[in-house]
Nucleic acid binder design. Structure first.
Lengths: 196, 196
DNA sequence: GTCTATACCACGATAGAC
DNA sequence: GTCTATCGTGGTATAGAC
């Protein structure tokens, strides 16, 4: 069973139940406003069981985070493989992000929003995580082939993906009036124009 | 005295001391990892004094947030007044954001990053706050005068400002190798190109 | 206005029966 | 593996002297 499309980790049903409940509560109220008792009540799994599967509360967040980030990174690998040009790769990446934000807003919120440093002190910042590094690598490759014009690679990366990510933030904050994935064509037109 | 350039609120020295200490701790460790005892120790102000000036811990965060957001909104008003074209206004807004991120990273981090909903349940999301609404209004006006090409106003807004905001996120996460304000010209070139 | 001392409670985590 | 009961800590907030 999978909690998140793309993830490969095999988890027992019990773990899945705990993690999906935690994801729901963490995104609704925040990590620190969610007690282990809340998870216990909401998932109807005893405290003892929770501590059987996870070392502690932080361990739950850690497992959740790894699961989601791994899933995203795997999909980015697929996108890389299935597309030939930088244009198509980057467009597919944005399409994926928008669709994911739409179909799994909580997963997206946990990845993009949660201040992981505050409860996962050993994690690097999300912008340096595998999926985001992958995206930056796509842009860099595109500059080498000439598809993207010469400039600082970081500037190119934030210019190409920044608009879409910002749009997803607005979506997660509930201030968009249309479903976020409907914006794909328009946002992509702007993004690609910015770097070519 | 002022905690943040642009803010007009008159605060006593004691309040300022408490707020600036709180800002430091909140951004370093996060709101929930900072106890009132920590603020007391760090600012060398007694618990009693803190509760004399602020209703509770949330009140500290609320005062800080209002102070910073008001300051930003005031500067955005100035920018509107001092510039005539949409091009100049939006460029000045981005310049301001980058410089602010550089000179007051903690203030910027508290505004952009903190999951306010988790500890300020009555605040609207930051993207709907006054300064950000102002920026969106600039873009909308620019589309009416024809400076910016016709499209969904939200898409135009995120395309114009999304790259810079993303860049600031990278800066705050410490993954930029140059000071963020040095990127102004390059990021602006991309941003403006995206919407014209 | 400023301080110290303390009440009170919620939470994370464990022990140990089944 | 699953559960309930409970412990200890540490946090917010208040009381009340100066």
């Amino acid at each position: 069973m999978e909690l998140f499309p793309g993830a490969e980790n095999s988890l027992s049903d019990r773990e899945m139940l705990i993690l999906s409940t935690a994801l729901e509560l963490f995104t609704q109220r925040g990590y620190f406003n969610t007690s282990v008792h809340d998870i216990h009540r909401s998932a109807r799994v005893s405290i003892g069981s929770i501590y059987h599967y996870f070392k502690n509360k932080e361990g739950i967040a850690q497992a959740l985070y790894s699961h989601l980030v791994d899933g995203m990174a795997n999909v980015m690998d697929d996108i890389d493989r299935e597309n030939k040009t930088t244009h198509d790769r980057c467009r597919a990446a944005i399409e994926y992000l928008l669709k994911l934000a739409q179909s799994s807003p909580q997963a997206m919120q946990f990845i993009l929003y949660a201040r992981h440093r505050e409860f996962l002190p050993d994690e690097k910042p999300i912008c340096s995580s595998r999926p985001f590094e992958k995206m930056k690598a796509m842009v860099k490759a595109g500059m080498e082939t000439g598809e993207i014009r010469q400039m600082d690679p970081t500037v190119a990366s934030v210019s190409l993906f920044g608009g879409a990510i910002r749009l997803i933030h607005l979506w997660l904050d509930g201030v968009l009036n249309r479903p976020v994935s409907e914006y794909l064509d328009e946002i992509w037109a702007c993004a690609w124009r910015a770097v070519t």
